[in-house]
Design a protein around this nucleic acid. Structure first.
Lengths: 113, 113
DNA sequence: TATTGATACATCATTTATCTATGCATCATA
DNA sequence: TATGATGCATAGATAAATGATGTATCAATA
């Protein structure tokens, strides 16, 4: 797990990317997938994920459908049409941001003002 | 400027990297340097920077020295010995985090569970 | 058969990094 | 003499994520 705050702002694009790749997913599955893909380094908390899912649902970015599997209810979330557009811009922004950070981190010390 | 929250957790390592590269710097100079290096995309607010500088000073990560230049007071901050160690781990963590995000963002859609 | 751990959803209070807004002061310029 | 750039500072607001907690089903095990 990374120091508390780095994750901020990255959860939403990560979620959108996952749904974009895999189609409909349910909460528990999302947590496991992120944990697995990040080699255990990113563990989304339920207290973070469910409010985010509900918010994106309310925004019309996600659509939902409940299915009963082995006596347990799973609530599947998928990208709406609007959500697919949103995903493109969210991922673009994150990648842009990361290159900016990378730029600062890799600037040679000799580059003085 | 990026959407509000992405910056969270990155300000400290960015600051440490800057001081590590350039030695002692003062607040206003730091804001300008980050703005310039990020091509205007990252603008640190004074309300964010000064409390951070004071906190790092209190932690013994930074050392300070005031100089009067052209009638204006500049408060220079530099890494302490402890701060140099801290910088190494902070930058390491940020880079590790970024590769993890990159890993998730670039995973091929065909990689299903 | 009782307990534990995994599965599955949910909410509420707390934390905390950053921003907004504001304040003060000096200097250069128009 | 007003404005913008330089320079430091703080207090209150914002909002994302966490921690803590709750409910319930199912599988494994002791």
């Amino acid at each position: 797990m990374y120091s508390k705050e780095l994750l901020k702002g990255t959860l939403k694009p990560i979620l959108l990317k996952l749904l974009s790749d895999r189609g409909a997913m349910y909460g528990y599955e999302i947590v496991q997938a992120v944990k697995q893909m990040s080699l255990g380094k990113i563990v989304i908390k339920e207290g973070s994920l469910y409010p985010l899912l509900h918010a994106l649902l309310a925004e019309g970015i996600l659509e939902t459908e409940s299915r009963k599997v082995d006596g347990r209810t799973r609530k599947y979330y998928a990208l709406s049409k609007k959500g697919k557009t949103e995903t493109v811009s969210a991922l673009g922004e994150l990648e842009d941001f990361m290159s900016t950070i990378k730029l600062i981190l890799t600037t040679k010390p000799t580059t003085q003002l």
